[in-house]
Write a protein that binds this DNA or RNA. Structure first.
Lengths: 241, 241
DNA sequence: CGCTCTTTGTGAAATCTTTGACAAAGTGCA
DNA sequence: TGCACTTTGTCAAAGATTTCACAAAGAGCG
């Protein structure tokens, strides 16, 4: 059955370079959402899905779905649609979920502890190996089974444990200093919760999670809604969301 | 002094409807970042800033900065630039930071506790009034000074305490159920950390924080970098970020 | 007070993203 | 096996967003 699926589209394989064209950030940002919905569908036992049906479920256009998937090569079959499980797998691979990622946490405060304890990450192959903190009281204790070490041990730990991703949950002043150290460590990426931008060497990927920014966008939306509906009063133009 | 600033651009005021043209999401998403940098500059005692200088600091084009600010009316002065403190204030107003927002937390787990304890929110006028949880052991205890109540008390609490924003940090199954209740409560917005989309009534704004999505985007970037630099090898075309 | 220099605000061009439309491919019933 | 039907992959148009380029406004020196 696996065989069937791979056999069904062998020509695509030989193109190979499909992954080399620059994919726009907009497309990439949508992939995790597809992945989420496809996972749910698969778990519900849905074997196949058309772009049209998925479009109804996800409230995006079918055209966008097809266009998005095609950036990575054709995963579908005319007259049939997409095989849910196969598509789910493929998107997982694109997102790098086909192999585990070793992570460490910098800053074992509330937020850091919350992330360490969040089992969905582990399930997807994102594995916390250790945490580091300046607070001596925490040293050599464990949080959700993960050991906490002094900050000074971090560079060696990274070297010896094949760490890919560093998760930063400390205040911005310290974050900037830690990043100077990290720039000399063999890591691949930083997941940054500090409320600032980081200057990293060219081969380190950074993804920022700026919670305050998100909250401010929300209160912007509140204000806009109120302006439209109090001041404006010209508004029965439904937003379809 | 306030007077001075408002007096300096009185004509703009009478346009009024400036806020009514639909502002694109892309622009809104950049506002908190401007706000952050302007706050830092103000704190450093920088009194005025030109779009060009800000562009160097923030690594965006000066043109984009001017265009963005102009969506909300002209905050600058030819030959001078922008008054840092004034611009900071104005963007704050646009983002709804000129008045406080009352919030409650649904789900007093690790993540929820982290958010409650995060003082930067309070400083910006986002005030947690109470938390709600199904765990009876937590009822009538306090987390960072905020009381925790049973879920059943939530609707009345919202009615009696003028709650604007509900912060959801519970698993998706429960989140969906809670939202059914919230749809009948007089709230303005939901800040959703549950790993799913929510169906809310038309006047409730929703901002999702999908941490897993963010992490997946990061591992996508890792994979892309590796593809470009191992398989590709055609790559000295620097990305300027 | 006038002149030069800076810098905004803004239309228009360039680029990027999304949507629409349809040929080609393949399904699956009879 | 053939035929009607479904649905993809893709090209082109429409729509958004970003960048460019410059006139007009005002700063601030002398």
């Amino acid at each position: 059955m696996d065989e069937n699926l791979t056999a069904a589209r062998p020509e695509k394989e030989e193109e190979g370079t499909v992954n080399n064209k620059e994919i726009s950030q907009a497309v990439v940002a949508r992939l995790p959402r597809y992945y989420r919905y496809l996972g749910d569908l698969r778990d519900e036992g849905v074997e196949r899905i058309s772009s049209q049906e998925l479009s109804r479920i996800m409230h995006v256009t079918a055209s966008q779905i097809r266009q998005d998937f095609n950036h990575f090569g054709g995963f579908g079959q005319q007259g049939y649609g997409y095989n849910t499980a196969y598509l789910y797998e493929e998107i997982g691979k694109i997102l790098g979920l086909d192999h585990p990622h070793n992570m460490i946490l910098i800053g074992a405060g509330h937020l850091g502890s919350a992330l360490i304890g969040y089992m969905n990450f582990r399930r997807r192959g994102y594995i916390f190996k250790a945490a580091f903190d300046i607070n001596e009281a925490l040293h050599n204790t464990k949080i959700s089974g993960i050991p906490v070490y002094p900050m000074a041990d971090m560079p060696d730990y990274i070297k010896n444990n094949n760490i890919d991703i560093v998760v930063i949950t400390i205040p911005k002043q310290e974050a900037v200093k830690v990043v100077e150290v990290l720039n000399r460590c063999p890591i691949k990426a930083i997941w940054n919760f500090a409320h600032c931008e980081l200057e990293v060497r060219e081969d380190i990927q950074v993804e920022n999670v700026h919670l305050s920014d998100s909250l401010m966008q929300l209160s912007y939306q509140i204000r806009q809604y109120e302006l439209r509906h109090k001041a404006g009063e010209e508004s029965p133009k439904e937003t379809k969301s």
